[in-house]
Simulated scan of single mutants.
Amino acid sequence: MQMNADYTSFVAVGDSFTEGMSDLLPDGTYRGWADLLAARLAARTPGFRYANLAVRGKLIGQIVAEQTGPAAAMRADVVTLVGGLNDTLRPRCDMGRVKGLLDEAAERLAPSCRRLVLMRSPGRNGPVMDRFRPRMEELFAHVDTVAARHGALVVDLYGSGALGDPRLWDADRLHLTAEGHRRVAEAVWQTLGLPAREDWRAPLPPAAVPGWTARRAGDLRFARRHLGPWIGRRLTGRSSGDDLPPKRPELLPYEPPPGS
């Protein structure tokens, strides 16, 4: 792929991962890898435009219904599509339907942009995520198939051992920290053919392993503050993104937010 490519616009499509949770800014909003990538692309190209249609909690069917049409209409140079992982975390998941919808999303978006970028999302190492890994890996295998079918690029975040390190994940064990998002932005940057600034796959320095008591206390805090409410939303059919608008619904010139 051509290095030093110029991109004039970027639209991000997806769920909480693309919205930027849990890369929290001082004003209480989320930044995330897509904002970081937009900032870097904007620094190269005057008048660079950016939209982020992602909303936390969205399933792939909602992404297709609510985001792909507006994204395709924007005719951006770069479109990133990340979705389906929330579906795999549901107790009941029709993987055939999920894979079909992912293909439908790519079919809508690929003709509308210069570069469609798909991702094999990162997964945190740990017993909770291990339960869902077979579904995740089935989804990621299909991501490769969809990319080949539509000429899309794939960022293999799941294949990076570093991004599975629990230290790059927030206390909810579902969303990356600021450092994790920074690494994802670098990974997408490189996949777009732009010159590497660092090795985003580099492992973190060794750290002391917490004792059994500290680990159990952490597990209890996680269950009380995050896992319990998450299960409650699943049982009642609610989502963390209900009634929330996209973070950046229009393709407008990018200006970094205060405190970013």
Results as ranks from 00 to 15, higher is better:
1 M>T: 12
2 Q>Y: 01
3 M>H: 10
4 N>R: 12
5 A>Y: 08
6 D>W: 02
8 T>Y: 08
12 A>M: 11
14 G>V: 05
15 D>Q: 14
15 D>R: 01
17 F>Y: 13
19 E>H: 08
20 G>W: 00
20 G>H: 08
27 D>L: 07
28 G>D: 01
28 G>K: 11
33 W>E: 06
37 L>T: 09
37 L>C: 09
37 L>F: 01
40 R>I: 02
42 A>V: 00
44 R>K: 15
44 R>C: 06
47 G>S: 13
52 N>W: 07
56 R>S: 09
58 K>T: 04
58 K>A: 11
59 L>P: 00
61 G>L: 06
63 I>R: 06
66 E>W: 07
67 Q>D: 04
67 Q>L: 07
68 T>S: 13
71 A>R: 02
72 A>D: 12
72 A>H: 05
78 V>F: 03
79 V>S: 07
79 V>K: 09
81 L>D: 06
81 L>Q: 03
82 V>T: 12
90 R>T: 12
90 R>I: 02
93 C>I: 03
94 D>A: 07
95 M>K: 04
95 M>H: 10
97 R>D: 15
99 K>C: 14
99 K>T: 02
100 G>K: 11
100 G>F: 05
102 L>C: 03
102 L>I: 00
106 A>D: 01
107 E>N: 08
109 L>W: 03
109 L>G: 10
110 A>G: 03
111 P>D: 07
112 S>E: 02
113 C>Q: 00
114 R>S: 07
115 R>K: 13
120 R>F: 00
123 G>S: 15
126 G>C: 05
128 V>M: 15
134 P>T: 04
135 R>G: 06
139 L>V: 05
140 F>N: 15
143 V>T: 14
144 D>I: 01
148 A>W: 02
149 R>I: 00
150 H>N: 15
156 D>V: 03
158 Y>S: 12
164 G>V: 06
165 D>C: 09
167 R>D: 03
168 L>R: 08
170 D>H: 15
171 A>N: 09
173 R>M: 10
175 H>T: 07
176 L>V: 07
176 L>P: 03
176 L>M: 03
176 L>Q: 10
177 T>S: 14
178 A>I: 08
180 G>S: 10
182 R>P: 04
183 R>F: 05
184 V>E: 05
185 A>K: 01
188 V>S: 08
188 V>E: 04
191 T>E: 15
192 L>G: 05
193 G>W: 07
194 L>Q: 01
195 P>V: 06
196 A>M: 06
196 A>S: 15
196 A>V: 03
197 R>E: 14
198 E>D: 14
198 E>T: 13
199 D>V: 01
203 P>S: 00
205 P>H: 11
206 P>M: 10
213 T>E: 15
216 R>C: 07
217 A>R: 15
217 A>T: 07
227 L>P: 05
228 G>K: 12
229 P>S: 11
230 W>P: 03
234 R>S: 08
234 R>E: 12
235 L>Q: 11
239 S>P: 08
244 L>C: 10
244 L>D: 12
249 P>W: 08
250 E>F: 06
253 P>L: 05
254 Y>Q: 05
255 E>V: 11
255 E>G: 04
256 P>H: 03
259 G>S: 09
260 S>F: 15
